[in-house]
Every structure is written in C-alpha cells, then in structure tokens.
Amino acid sequence: QDPLTTTLAPASPQEQKQMLGEQLFPLIPAVHPTLTGKITGMLTDTDNSEPLCVLETPVSLASKADEAVTALQEKEAAQKAK
C-alpha cells in the first residue's frame, strides 16, 4: 500500500518520471546542497525502481546522490582532459 506506487501506476512513463523527479528534487539538497537538478535528473533517468527505492529509504538517497556526484565529477574531469 505505497501511495506513490499507487499514484504512479496509471500514469504514462513520462508522467511517472515527472512525479518521481518532483518527489526527489526537494530531498536532494539535504545530502548535496549543489547540483540538485543534475542529481535529480540522473536518478530520475534510471529505471523507476531506483528513484522509488531512494524515496523510500533515506540511506539509499545519500548513497545514490554520492554515486551521482562522483559520476558527474568523473565526467567533468574527462571533459577537461580533452
């Protein structure tokens, strides 16, 4: 009986992503004050199970946000190296 899952069920895939992003966005600054939009984008752009898991477990949120930031930093470093 997860309200969010119930809300998501009848929505289109794009609407589901939108809802998940709207839910995630205000949570991100608690673990990473910067890059909120990018981190939300990365988490939203995965299979829906991932953002759902993050929303349900705060520990997972911090972990996934860290992964996202690390990936971003690696990408920036790679771009600078070019």
Partner: peptide, 26 residues
Amino acid sequence: SNGSSISWPPEFHPGVPWKGLQNIDP
C-alpha cells in the same frame, strides 16, 4: 547541433515537463 551546451545528465527542474534523455542532443 547544440550538444555542447546540453549534456548528460539531463537536469530536472520542478514544474518543467521531464523529457529525460530527449533533452540531450545526440
């Protein structure tokens, strides 16, 4: 191509329709 100005990951903005990877110019 505007691939240099928009890059992965797509940025999420509340209230703005999410297009995911469609935001990115391949």
